[in-house]
Design a protein around this nucleic acid. Structure first.
Length: 453
RNA sequence: GGCGGCGUGGCCGAGUGGCUUAGGCAAGGGCCUGCAAAGCCCUGUACAUGAGUUCGAUUCUCAUCGCCGCCUCCA
């Protein structure tokens, strides 16, 4: 039985799918107005692993993740760069999917866009007004947080404490809102802004309503999992839930929130803080699998620090895994059952990927040891298990990234084999130095000199 | 001010009331090798500080110090 930490209840709960054998999950996707940073990468990786593991466990997953394609920041970006909002959206959304691919993440089953659901949102907002949960002002429509008895459930704070919150910061709120915590469901358009018709005034939806309407619309009431970054816990997810409950719906059963990526120095990485490292940059300079492994090796709810050293360590660790898989070669052996079971036990414990990843390395060592003692069958069973596990973590292993040996290097390697056969060690060592000078690492195998980078 | 999290060996990073007390990277020793590389074996006596609970705490409680997050848009 898979147990997951539910943010709303603040404890581990069993995953009991609404429809037996099927899991419905909604993950808040990006607002496409700028390039993605490492935090988005972690986000994509975390939920990719959740999805893959659920499927690996035999569950049928329906994974929905939205793209916010109308929002204040998109408008601001368009104005600042002299482009239309459509152009801004097209540019950054295309970039987003390129990154998803480079990270080795599978695309969601469905990707609803906010602008495709404006009519549904308008209908939903009107219903909230009819139910006395929302009200129109001269600049839009607002949700009344006072109308919901348990507003603050996800923030795990009372309405009063939220209202008084902020320390020495200013409480943000328009004077025409009934409560400073009330949030916009609909924003009336200012001249020049993109807009859609509505019963109140032409305008655009607020940020939170799209997720409520699209999640309920596609997955239905009481869907299983809702995920996002810890920074979305409040107010975004609180507000999504408030809108759903106020509209008479049961919302997500389990809330999953992952920790933030820390910038060098320990501070949270954010676009608004200007301290982010772009994901594109990292993926260009490192094996994308190294970032995936790094993410897997820190617990999803903990903050994680990304450094060049960490990435280099992960890359080195991956090499060892690749070498084993290459050495063993293709196998249709039955995966070692004990190894799979240990992996399952760790993953079922709130996706303990750090422990689960450790199994990868233990299996590697055991397989290599089996190879050393000529126990080919056991080595294959362990490698098969290792491949099964790495698949659940989304890691593809083996010489996927290997560089092709050029003709000159191949010739030198052949000459060295000849020298070694003739026991001309001096010549063999010279040839090795020559090859190493060209960036190759030499391994002597039964089949002769083997080159790798 | 309110709510919450963290402080583990050279570095990263799990975890646990005592039992062989993850894993990776790096380091040292050994096996293997013509020498290497790869692989395997062995080694490090770590849990911020103080007090308390306990037969026993890194693990529970309290306090202290330090760091961080949320309460405002942000994965």
């Amino acid at each position: 039985m898979l147990r997951i930490h539910d943010t709303a209840r603040g404890r581990l709960v069993d995953l009991e799918p609404r429809d037996p054998g099927k899991v419905s999950m909604y993950v808040c996707g990006p607002t496409v107005y700028d390039v993605a940073h490492l935090g988005h990468g972690r986000h994509l990786l975390v939920f990719d692993v959740v999805r893959r593991y659920l499927e690996w466990s035999g569950l049928e997953v329906r994974y929905v993740s939205n793209v916010t394609d109308i929002e204040d920041k998109i408008i601001a970006k368009a104005n600042a760069t002299g482009r239309s909002t459509d152009e801004v959206v097209a540019t950054y959304e295309a970039e987003w999917w390129r990154l998803v691919e480079r990270l080795g993440c599978r695309r969601p089953d469905e990707v609803p866009h906010a602008t495709q659901y404006v009519d549904e949102m308008v209908t939903y907002i009107q219903d909230l007004i009819d139910r006395g949960r929302a009200y129109a002002t001269d600049d839009g429509v607002y949700f009344s947080v006072e109308s919901l008895e348990d507003y603050g459930q996800l923030a795990r704070q009372s309405l009063e404490s939220l209202r008084e919150g902020g320390g020495d910061r200013d409480v943000v709120g328009r004077t025409n809102k009934r409560s400073p915590l009330d949030f916009a469901l609909w924003k009336n358009a200012k001249p020049g802004e993109p807009s859609w018709p509505s019963p109140w005034a032409d305008g655009r939806p607020g940020w939170h309503i799209e997720c409520t309407v699209m999640a309920l619309g596609l997955l239905g009431d009481a869907f299983d999992l809702h995920g996002g970054g810890l920074d979305l816990q409040f107010p975004h997810h609180e507000n999504e839930r408030a809108q759903a409950v106020a509209g008479g719906h049961a919302f997500a059963t389990i809330w999953l929130h992952h920790g933030m990526v820390l910038a060098p120095g320990g501070q949270e990485m954010h676009r608004s803080a200007g301290n982010f490292v772009s994901l594109d940059d990292l993926l260009t300079r490192h094996d994308p699998r190294a970032y995936r492994l790094l993410v897997a090796r820190s617990h999803y709810r903990s903050p994680m620090e990304v450094s060049e050293k960490n990435l280099a360590d992960a890359t080195e660790a991956l090499r060892g895994l690749d070498r084993l898989v290459d050495t063993v070669g293709p196998t249709d052996a039955q995966p070692d059952a004990a190894t799979l079971q240990r992996f399952r036990d760790y993953m079922d414990d709130d996706f303990n990927t750090p422990q689960a990843a450790a199994i990868l390395f233990e299996a590697r060592r055991a397989a290599n040891a089996a190879l050393d003692t000529e126990d080919r069958a056991h080595a294959e069973a362990l490698t098969a298990a290792l491949l099964s596990i790495s698949g659940a973590l989304g890691l593809s292993l083996g010489s996927v990234g290997d560089t092709v040996v050029d003709a000159a290097a191949a010739t030198l390697a052949q000459e060295r084999d000849a020298a070694r056969a003739a026991k001309d060690w001096a010549r063999a060592d010279d040839l090795r130095a020559e090859l190493e000078g060209r960036g190759w690492i030499i391994e002597d195998t039964a089949g002769g000199t083997r080159l790798r980078r």
